Amino acid sequence: METLLNWVIATLNGSALNGLVMDNRYVFPMLEMAHFIGLSLLFGALLVVDLRMVGVARRVPMQRVDLFVRFAPIGFAINLVTGLLFLVGDSDRYLVNVAFWAKMGMIALAGLNTAYFVRRIKPQMAAGVDSADLAGGARTVAVLSLAFWCSVIVLGRFIPYVEDL
């Protein structure tokens, strides 16, 4: 397994994309700014929706809150692209880092939670069902969403400070 990991790291480090990300003094900071904007769109939208689903700001109709959901995939897409560029650019930092792998695990769990939300909860929100009447464990989904995404943020901040596996 370690040999495969070393091969992947060497291959990524030898790529032209790695050179673009690491050898240009503007690219990495621009990626960091874009990653932060993506995170703001993703987490900001989720925060509004999840807090409303747990009962905060009950006067705001669920259909209005549902409008925020469209910003989450945009933020996620920005973070996916910039995150992949970080990985290609500095693979020997990321691929051997326990905080990175824990972050990827949390993103996977958040993705499963989101899939459940999209299939079971979002159609009710679009129909105007109030948060108190949402079926399918909506509050649990919202709490898990907040927990998973907060963990992703914290683990992402740990990456520069955590040593190798």
Rank of each mutant, 00 (worst) to 15 (best):
S40W: 06
N18W: 03
H35I: 09
A138Q: 04
V162T: 14
G38S: 11
Q63Y: 02
Y161E: 10
V141T: 13
S15M: 10
G75Y: 08
P73S: 05
D164W: 08
L165C: 01
L112S: 02
E163W: 05
R93D: 02
K103H: 09
D23A: 12
W7Y: 12
F100S: 00
N97Y: 05
W101V: 11
F71G: 09
G137F: 07
V81F: 12
L39G: 15
F43A: 09
V141N: 08
G137L: 06
I159T: 06
D164V: 08
V154F: 09
Y161F: 13
A77P: 01
P73A: 03
S40K: 00
L31F: 05
G19F: 06
D133A: 12
G128Q: 08
D92V: 01
N13H: 07
V21I: 14
A16Q: 14
S91Q: 02
I78E: 07
D50M: 05
G136T: 06
M62N: 03
I37C: 11
M30E: 10
L41I: 05
V88K: 08
P160W: 14
T3Y: 03
A108H: 03
V141Q: 03
F158S: 02
G111T: 11
T3N: 11
G137N: 07
S15V: 07
A115Q: 03
F148G: 00
F71R: 01
L4R: 10
A99L: 10
A102G: 07
G55R: 02
V154D: 04
